[in-house]
Nucleic acid binder design. Structure first.
Length: 310
DNA sequence: TTCCAGGTGCATA
DNA sequence: TATGCACATGGA
């Protein structure tokens, strides 16, 4: 009996040790230290098109620091300093950013699923440090309505203007406006932030969100959720997939945009295809519950190959 | 000047 | 259900 207890305790200790060894980070007061960069590259994470409110800080890129960025999410912020062998996430909200950067997920195992697809293997090799962020749902919905037929630079500019004009002043940055704050913005004011024809979609969808309540969306199953999202103005199949992927961390979707059409026609078909539904169906059934990851590696790879700068 | 960007809404057939 | 056009705007 006593031997069993000792064995059990040793097993527990071994598990704790094993888990801590596998963890890619350790926490300190106001800091997360990423000790293994094989699945973490801040440049790739932020510049792969999933998020828009970040700034590169070249003035901090000196000595051993290779990349320096500031990220703002909701009403929180972090400075990320990455060197050759480690990265530091400096923030007052350590737990928030552990979840935000998906640090407890095992990306090594995720990437192993993609070695049999030649193109994806190259894409994963190139974007080895990509992680799918756990972003604020409201911010994702607004961001991707603005993303329609738009470019990343202008999406960033519009979102920053919306935050500066209507978000809470947090000292040296602005929070993303709450739903209540967003509901006070009219179409003209959105247009002044450079969102163009999407202004009316934003006003309409924000009203709908006030009515249906954001938290009620989380009670729906995947199909109901997508139908509900598409019922809002400015949200079609592609934007809905982005909201599911980046706002709900649903990895079974594969948003098809202009870049995915290029990828599909370059690597996955002999006959040129323009039908987004056909492309989406093929890629979702090919990558199944890992589709979201696959999409993000491929999206980043293709854009980088073509030399697109954010 | 023209084309394009993490598309969608709407009218028409 | 499928197709085609309009929609803002700034950079290449």
């Amino acid at each position: 009996m006593q031997i069993d207890l000792i064995k059990q305790n040793w097993q527990n200790l071994f598990n704790i040790y094993n888990n801590s060894m596998r963890k890619i980070y350790i926490t300190k007061p106001d800091e997360i230290l990423i000790k293994d960069l094989s699945c973490f590259c801040i440049k790739q994470i932020l510049e792969c098109g999933q998020v828009f409110r970040f700034t590169r800080l070249p003035e901090l890129e000196k000595n051993e620091v290779v990349f320096a960025y500031r990220i703002i999410s909701k009403d929180k912020t972090a400075i990320i300093l990455e060197s050759d062998n480690q990265a530091k996430i400096l923030t007052k909200d350590v737990n928030y950013f552990i979840n935000y950067f998906d640090l407890d997920a095992d990306y090594e195992s995720i990437k192993e699923n993609f070695v049999e697809d030649e193109i994806l293997k190259c894409a994963v090799n190139y974007g080895y440090g990509i992680r799918i962020l756990n972003q604020d749902l409201l911010e994702v919905i607004i961001s991707f309505i603005i993303s329609a037929n738009n470019n990343i630079k202008r999406i960033q500019k519009s979102l920053n203007l919306i935050c500066e004009r209507f978000g809470k002043n947090m000292g040296d940055y602005y929070a993303f406006p709450s739903l209540k704050e967003l509901s006070k913005i009219n179409e003209q004011q959105f247009r002044e932030c450079g969102v163009g024809f999407r202004a009316k979609y934003l006003v309409s969808t924000i009203n709908d969100l006030i009515e249906c309540k954001l938290e009620n969306l989380t009670k729906l199953n995947n199909d109901e959720l997508k139908s509900k999202l598409i019922s809002f103005k400015g949200i079609g199949p592609k934007v809905a997939d982005c909201i599911l992927l980046f706002g709900f961390h649903d990895m079974s979707v594969f948003p098809v945009d202009t870049w995915v059409i290029k990828i599909f026609n370059a690597y996955y078909t002999v006959k040129q295809e323009r039908n987004v539904k056909v492309i989406n169906k093929f890629l979702v059934s090919k990558f199944k519950n890992l589709a979201g990851y696959a999409q993000q590696y491929l999206f980043y790879y293709k854009r980088e190959l073509e030399g697109v700068k954010i």
